[in-house]
Structures are given as C-alpha cells and as structure tokens.
Amino acid sequence: MGAGEPARGAQLSEMGPGQGGVVLEVNGAGLARRRLLEMGFVAGTPVRVVRRAPLGDPLEVDVGGYRLSLRRELAAHIRIGPAADA
C-alpha cells in the first residue's frame, strides 16, 4: 500500500483487529513461506486479524475459519487484497 510500491495489496502484519481480506500471495522463501502455505495461506483464502496480543505481538489471525497465533515478522510475508465479492 505504502508510497506507490509495486507490491500488491497490504501486509497482513500492518492490519488492525477486525481488518482482513483474501490472501494474494506469500512472499519470502524457504521454510517460513512453505509452512505458511501449508497452514492454509493459499491465494484466495479469506483471512482476518482477530486481535493483537496484549503486548502488541503476535497477532491472532483467522485463516479460513481457524485461528492462528502469528508473529508480525511472519505476517509481513502475507499480502492481502480486498475480499472477493462472493
């Protein structure tokens, strides 16, 4: 979102409680990316930040119906677009 960068969508880590959308893509490489995909962050999945932990990190994220505690540094790999009309 920031300063006309070419990156698509918003970083999940920058979203506040209640905000969300659908997964566009997962950046990064290696184990972290693979595991995020395996946990269900595949393109098109609806996700939403439910809350932040009392100390600001990690985030509680709803991933297509289940809840995951995710540190912001990992959530930063996930690009979110506006929810599909369906």
Binding site: Y66, L68, L74
Partner: peptide, 11 residues
C-alpha cells in the same frame, strides 16, 4: 531459532 516459532494454533 525457527522463524516459525510463535506460530501456534488457537483451538
């Protein structure tokens, strides 16, 4: 540490 630590399902 695993970059993944802290990733945890909240059942």
């Amino acid at each position: 540490p695993e970059r993944l630590s802290g990733m945890l399902e909240l059942p």
